[in-house]
Computed example of a mutant assay.
Amino acid sequence: MNLSPRIQFLIKNGLKGFVWLLIILGAYFLFKEFVISRTPDAWMDKIYAQPLLVYLVYCFSEFFFGIIPPELFMIWAINKDTIAHYFINLAFFATVSYFMGYLTFLIGRFFYKRDGLKRFRNTLLKEQWPLLKKYGLFLIIVAALTPLPWAAISLLVGSAGYPSKRYLKYALFRFLRFAIYGYIIFQTHII
């Protein structure tokens, strides 16, 4: 069966996303087993005592190109309180990610047709720009579902002058990513 380049791109990056999720979960379980389990109060009390700080760090990370993977915040949320609290946090994380992506999209739109953008695009976003030209709005879906930098892709798409309504429609796939990854993290912590 011959798959289109767009589907191949989606599958390739989807597999990378799941590999990264497995690496993050593996690192977390190792950290939990060898560090946290030996001094659990010292680690957990510091982190869980300041949820507002965790939420602010998450918002900052989502705005600045996903510095910290959202899966780490999902792991934090599942260990924090009840299952209902986890799903509320998961919805919060997905919504923040969606809107931070839209905020960076709007920043990109601001720079659309400005001379400074060319210099910015050629230095910071040189790897993503050819992908946008090749895959167009399909890139939004792939970035929403995979570890491609969501905010950077959103900024790039905005800077290319894509319409807001189309961006917002395709960006809804971000919620699907959080649902899938959140479910996987939930299942790994029930056992």
Rank of each mutant, 00 (worst) to 15 (best):
W150P: 12
G17C: 09
L53Q: 00
K126H: 04
G26Q: 07
Y98K: 06
L25D: 06
I140L: 13
V19Q: 08
H189C: 01
Y181G: 14
I78E: 05
P149N: 10
N2M: 08
I47C: 09
L52G: 07
T39A: 07
Y102Q: 06
Y162Q: 11
G66W: 13
P147Q: 10
L22D: 12
I67K: 03
R166F: 14
R119L: 01
S97D: 11
V157E: 02
Y112H: 05
K169E: 12
N13G: 02
F29T: 00
L10R: 01
V19M: 11
T188Q: 09
A84S: 06
Y162L: 10
A160L: 04
L30G: 15
I141K: 09
L124Y: 09
V54R: 02
Q187N: 05
T146M: 09
F186Y: 09
V54A: 00
E62G: 14
L56F: 14
I68N: 13
I153V: 15
L176I: 15
F34V: 10
L56E: 00
F110I: 06
L172T: 15
T82R: 01
K133E: 12
Y48S: 09
Y112L: 00
L103T: 13
V54L: 04
W43N: 01
F73N: 09
A152T: 10
L106H: 10
A179C: 10
T146R: 04
A160W: 01
A49F: 07
F175P: 10
F110V: 02
V96M: 08
H85V: 15
T39P: 03
F65Y: 15
Y98L: 02
Y28K: 07
A143E: 04
I75H: 04
F18P: 07
K134N: 08
R174E: 12
P130C: 06
P149L: 08
L21G: 11
K133M: 14
Q50G: 06
Q50N: 01
P163I: 12
F63K: 11
Y58Q: 08
R119C: 02
L145A: 12
G136M: 00
